[in-house]
Computed example of a mutant assay.
Amino acid sequence: MDQKTFNAVLKKVQPALQAEGKAIDMARILRWQEMRAKMVKSIIDECDVATLDSKTWKLIKKEAGIKKSKFLQKSDADVSKYLSAYQKAHGKFVKEMGEPVGRAVIACREMLVANKKLQDSFDKFLGSKEFKTELAKDLQASCQQMKKTLVSQFEMLRDYATDSEKEAKQLEATFDQFILTS
């Protein structure tokens, strides 16, 4: 909040507060706002796709001053929705890594789909919003970094899926050959 806006708000609020007999220390309110902004900035800086959940996303978006668009309402909900789906697919993939190849490949495919949808939702979000405030610009940079992480992760998962499918086919061929020769 700049000084001009602060003075305008103070002019409107001060008479009502004094009428009720409440003295507000505006310097304390400003310090609180600065501390809150620093806290949100630290959350934004530490954001990672693997740890970011939908509640934190909504908080960050609200604190950054990014509001819902009247025309593009779908892009507002997409990131939160796809973050939840990504978290679920990520957890399942990590759990299935130690299981037989077929189950791991299925979990990997689900992770690929969730990853791609989250990438697309970040694209929509970044393309449809205006990032005016300092926190909003930090959020934009964080989203771009998370998108880069998702792209590299997508490539690694795709490679893993193709390698695992080849391995599964080789195991199946060996098994068939063993059964037929017995």
Rank of each mutant, 00 (worst) to 15 (best):
L139H: 07
Y86E: 09
P15F: 00
L17V: 06
S84W: 05
K137L: 13
V101W: 03
A37Y: 05
A85W: 05
S54T: 07
A77P: 00
H90G: 07
Y160E: 13
A16V: 13
K70D: 12
P15Y: 00
S75C: 05
R109N: 06
V101Q: 07
F178M: 12
Q14R: 06
Q18M: 02
K74H: 07
F178E: 14
A85I: 09
Q3D: 11
D78N: 09
S80H: 01
A168V: 00
K58M: 12
L157W: 11
D48S: 13
A64L: 08
W32D: 10
Q14P: 01
D53F: 00
F93W: 14
D53S: 01
K147Y: 08
M35G: 06
R103F: 03
E96Q: 14
I43K: 13
V94F: 07
E110S: 04
A89I: 11
E96C: 10
K88N: 13
K41G: 06
K61R: 15
K4Q: 14
A141Y: 07
L17S: 04
K61M: 05
G21I: 03
N115F: 02
K116P: 02
F154E: 14
F93Y: 15
A50D: 13
R109E: 01
K12V: 13
G21K: 02
K117W: 06
C108E: 13
H90I: 06
M39W: 08
G98C: 07
W57I: 08
D48A: 09
M156S: 12
F178G: 05
W57R: 00
S42C: 04
I106G: 03
L126P: 02
D163Y: 01
K38F: 04
E34C: 06
K148Y: 03
E110Y: 00
Q33W: 10
M1Q: 09
L112W: 02
N7E: 15
V105P: 00
F154I: 05
N7Q: 15
E172H: 05
F122Y: 11
K169H: 00
S152F: 03
A23P: 01
V151Y: 01
K12I: 12
K12F: 07
S121P: 01
L139G: 09
I106R: 11
K38Y: 05
